[in-house]
Structures are given as C-alpha cells and as structure tokens.
Amino acid sequence: MSETTSTAPQAIAPKRSFHYFANPARFVRVADAVYPWCFYAALICLGVGFYTALFVAPADYQQGETVRIMYVHVPAAWMAMFIYANMALASASLLIWRHPLAGAFAKAAAPIGAAFTFLALFTGAFWGKPMWGAWWVWDARLTSVLILFFIYLGHIALVDAFDNPDRGQKAAAVLCLVGAVNLPIIKFSVDWWNTLHQPASITKLGTPSIHSSMLWPLLIMAIGYMLFFACLAIIRTKSELLAAKQRSLSLRALHAGGGD
C-alpha cells in the first residue's frame, strides 16, 4: 500500500506539493533509521553528564554545592527556547507550504517544550531558595521563562480544542508565530521592568565567568538534552501521524460499515 501518509489532510486537498523530507512516509523511514543512534547517544551523553555533574564537577567557591543545579537548570532553559524556535519554524512551514508533517511536529514538540520550561522553573526555584533566600523572586530571566511557560500551555490547550485536528494544528501555528514575534518584546519589557523595580541587594545568579571544568559537563548535558528531545520528537511525531491515520481509517470503517 502506498497510502502510508497521513490521509486526513489529503482528503481535503488531494494535490499538494511536498518538500522532500516533509513527506510523512519518508520522514518515518528516515526517523526509524536515525532513532536508535539518537537514543543511545542521548543515553551516553546524559549518563556522562549526570555523572560528571554530581561527582566530577567542582563545587563553586561562592555557591558551594548548589552550583550542581546549574547542570540541570541551564540546559532546560536552553531547551525551552530552542524547542519554541523549532515550533515556530514548523508552524511557518505548516502555514506557508501546508506540510502536514510540520503540524504534527509542532503539536508533538509543545508538551516537551512545556516540560523543559517547567523543569527550568522548578530547578530555578530550588536554586533561588538558597541563593536569594526565596523560592521565587521576580527576576527578569525567571519571569520571562514563566511567561514562555504560559505561552506553551496556551499552545497545548489550543491544539486540542477543536473537533477537527487539522484546524487545531493550524490555529496553534498562528498562535506560535504571534508568540514568536512577541517573545523578544516580552523579554525586553520584562528586563526593562526588572531594572526599574530591582532592589539593589539581589545578587545575580549564573553568568559568572564559567571555568572550563564546569563548562564541559554543561555542554555534554546540553547535547544530551538535545538528543533526548530529538528522540521524543521522533516518537511523538510518529504518534501524531499514526493518530491521523487512525482517524481516517476508523472513519472509513464506519463509512463502509454503514454502506453495507
């Protein structure tokens, strides 16, 4: 059978030109080939990363052992932004070229992005408590990440809010792009607001001159997170494509059953 692509969007407009890798069937073939490599590389990087973060990396002379939180906090914050950028690119290609794969990918990636954003906030709070003496301070960076988290939640809610999943993906794509335009403004405004209201006593976290003995575990950890995201994105995108196929198959079964 040649109809291994997601059939739901095609039922609406049968003739659509696809970019090479945007063909869902081809994506599944490539992804299946790449997945094992991604998986084991992620496992190795995360294993080495966690080990060095917990046992090898030195304690900071100012922050003591709490600096180990950096190795899970900073990559999570990076991923929160990286995944949103990926979703924005996918959303643009869904709206411009109508790649069904791009819609499936954006839908699949959003919960992963939200999970990493949550982790960045959680670990940020647990790092802030010993450093700032409070679980939450309205620090510019934490606040921006919090708003990013809200935007992720809006995206997840919108994508699932329609009876027609195709419409949900497209609406969420518009939201994602509007968010992408707004995020730099939000970041700037929050920085601006923070400098106006910041009490002078707060000591800034992070961005000290990082010693190389701290940098390389951080980079390995970040690569591990990235590969982990790739694995999850492959699994979840495949699930979305299968879900679309399942819908059209069960519709067809219903149709055929009614016709008999």
Partner: peptide
C-alpha cells in the same frame, strides 16, 4: 554541603519528568 534539600529535588525532578515523558 548542607544543600541536600535543594540539589537532590532538582535532579530527581529532572529524571522523573524526563523518564515520565519518555
């Protein structure tokens, strides 16, 4: 170094969320 209550929950949460999601 006295920060166990902050370091371990961070690593635990990271592992739980990542494994759970997977």
């Amino acid at each position: 170094g006295g920060y166990a209550a902050f370091v371990w929950p961070c690593f635990a949460a990271t592992l739980i969320v990542m494994i759970g999601l997977y």
